[in-house]
Write a protein that binds this DNA or RNA. Structure first.
Length: 589
DNA sequence: CAAGCAATAT
DNA sequence: AATATTGCTT
């Protein structure tokens, strides 16, 4: 918008631009001079490169542009070009009768900004001012990384953008790359397209989240994002894509949900007593549906299934985060291609009563009727002959964790809804967050009150109570992803989870261990640094834990940490991206 | 004029 | 494939 106006404002031919024309051939020089005059440039001529160089050296900043012949007796035009480039960084246009690409290339390599062929046509000369603008703009970009509020229009006063500049046929465009990724240059014909990086997209998401998915409009989003040179159109385009992606997701998710509904009578996640180490939590965080209704389920009811996901799955990698296999009965939405059961080398299908065969169970993550979430499966131990029992270890650590949880008394007043993505991003950039992230153990749990205290009201974390009201409870920005990346060895992190390492028992076991570790890290981090969030979502955490261990106990590779996971308990369908997102009431699906 | 949508262009 | 642009409707 403003950029456009700028373009228009400087949309004039630069009268009096100072050009130094160099040619040993007097005739050519005359012609050149005449033509340049006709273009309303201020022309100085010389027939020797040496003289030209002296002129330039003596009168620094007295010229805006040099046009030089290539073939000159006293000095090669390229030499002149080189020296000029070295000493004063003026735009130089080469001129020659040779159309040989070799010469052209040489000129380009030496830094010529244009290469004109004799005889020069006035149309070509009319355009050369652009090089001046381009060059100076580029220089400024290099020196000033950030915003270019140009008060120094000394050498570029009133120059214009010629958007659809079509090159003359013999013209060589050599500096396309150098203006390639900056969009400030009025002379750049094509504005560079926006690259929607994760970072940018996160900003976008944060803004959308902040406004509410429905209410978000390009203009508002643009303002909130506050990204330089991003246009409303850019945002609109992205928003369009985003919305269609969202729609696609919700459709498929609903489909899943409906399928799940049909089969719902299979779905008693019956006895939670199978959960060895979970007594504490069962006591402390009752599983009753009332809890869920009154808590997260009620507040999150309106979310689309494909919640804005600030670190991955939903968008822009839409397709990969969606269930591709509908034959899983909709119990688990999982984002990876699901290999046929045969490929899994799972050794517990036949004789494990907890997971009886299921007609549609070629997918890996199937809840069996009457299944129990038994953590101590013998078969598991057989996969880990080393004696280390992940389950016991996990149980132990979960117990610790749960005790920690219990022993920490968080006042009810500190329990809030979580911040929305925008707020969360702010928070993540704040000192408090840094301390929280890096020194989690030293600091101990942080409460919302602490968070609030340690960040300024204007830009810090504040309680997004209104998000509860307008039904746009936001996503959990950037948390798990960070954790994954920081806690997992690189080769085990994200990328591998998508591709998976199926096939060999050993690898699967390894993979499960990796997941366990990941998950424990996740929990610990959650406990340590985001206590408040955890507490706000304690209703959510339990199902998350359950589902995770369910996956483990199934001896299947759990879903990607970034993808959805969904199961039903007590009449409620839990849709759980691993970042603790949406919970929907069964009845609303 | 801004938005949203769909189609089309780059 | 991802963005931009355009044209049309609201």
């Amino acid at each position: 918008m403003t950029v456009e106006q700028e373009f228009e404002a400087v949309d004039q031919f630069p009268v009096g631009m100072r050009v130094l024309a160099v040619d040993d051939d007097q005739t050519c020089l005359r012609i050149l001079e005449t033509l340049l005059h006709r273009c309303q440039y201020h022309v100085t001529t010389t027939d020797s490169a040496q003289t030209a160089l002296e002129l330039l050296r003596e009168n620094k900043n007295k010229f805006d542009l040099v046009i030089s012949d290539v073939d000159m007796p006293d000095m090669d035009g390229f030499k002149l070009l080189e020296l000029v480039g070295l000493e004063m960084d003026l735009p130089v246009i080469m001129l020659s009768a040779h159309s040989d690409p070799k010469y052209v290339m040489k000129g380009v390599k030496h830094g010529a900004c244009d290469y004109l062929l004799k005889p020069v046509r006035i149309e070509e000369l009319k355009n050369i001012w652009q090089h001046v603008v381009r060059k100076s703009k580029f220089k400024k970009m290099k020196s000033i990384v950030t915003n270019v509020e140009s008060t120094d229009n000394t050498d570029q006063n009133g120059v214009k953008a010629n958007r659809k500049r079509k090159d003359q046929f013999e013209e060589v465009e050599e500096d396309d790359e150098e203006r390639g990724n900056e969009n400030d240059d009025p002379t750049a014909q094509k504005k560079p397209r926006v690259l929607w990086t994760r970072e940018l997209h996160n900003k976008f998401l944060a803004a959308v989240d902040h406004l509410g998915v429905e209410k978000a409009q390009p203009k508002k989003i643009l303002e909130l994002m506050n990204v330089d040179k991003l246009t409303r159109e850019n945002v609109a385009s992205h928003l369009q894509k985003f919305r269609s992606a969202l729609k696609k997701i919700t459709n498929e998710a609903n489909q899943q949900a409906n399928m799940a509904a049909i089969d719902s009578h299979f779905m008693q996640m019956s006895s939670l007593k199978g959960l060895g180490g979970f007594h504490h939590q069962q006591r402390q965080i009752p599983l009753g549906s009332g809890q869920f209704h009154g808590g997260a389920a009620a507040t999150m009811r309106h979310f689309p299934l494909g919640r804005l996901n600030s670190f991955g799955g939903v968008f822009p990698h839409v397709s990969s985060s969606l269930p591709r296999n509908h034959s899983d009965g909709g119990y688990i939405l999982q984002g990876m291609p699901i290999p046929p059961l045969d490929d899994l080398h799972i050794n517990n299908n036949n004789n494990n009563k907890a997971f009886p065969s299921f007609s549609s169970q070629q997918t890996s993550l199937m809840v069996a009727p009457n299944n129990q979430l038994v953590l101590q499966q013998p078969s598991y131990a057989s996969l880990n002959p080393g004696g280390f029992s992940p389950h016991l270890e996990i149980n132990k650590r979960l117990e610790d964790w749960s005790n920690t949880l219990l022993s920490t008394n968080i006042p009810q007043s500190d329990v809030h809804s979580k911040p929305d993505a925008l707020e969360w991003n702010h928070f993540c950039n704040s000192d408090a967050a840094q301390a929280g992230f890096s020194g989690a153990n030293n600091l101990g749990p942080m409460t919302d009150a602490q968070l609030l205290r340690s960040s300024s009201p204007s830009e810090g974390l504040f309680v997004g109570q209104q998000k509860l009201e307008n039904g746009s409870m936001p996503s959990d920005a950037g948390s798990l992803d960070d954790i994954v990346n920081s806690m997992m060895p690189k080769e085990q992190s994200q990328a591998d989870f998508f591709e998976g390492d199926w096939g060999l028992d050993g690898i699967i076991a390894h993979s499960e261990l990796a997941y366990e570790n990941l998950f424990l890290c996740f929990l610990c981090n959650l406990v340590n640094m985001r206590k408040s969030v955890l507490f706000r979502h304690n209703q959510l955490l339990l199902p998350l834990v359950l589902s995770f261990f369910f996956l483990l106990s199934c001896k299947k590779k759990p879903v990607s940490p970034l993808c959805n996971l969904c199961f039903k308990h007590d009449g409620i369908l839990f849709v759980l991206p691993m970042n603790l997102l949406a919970v929907k009431e069964w009845s609303n699906l």
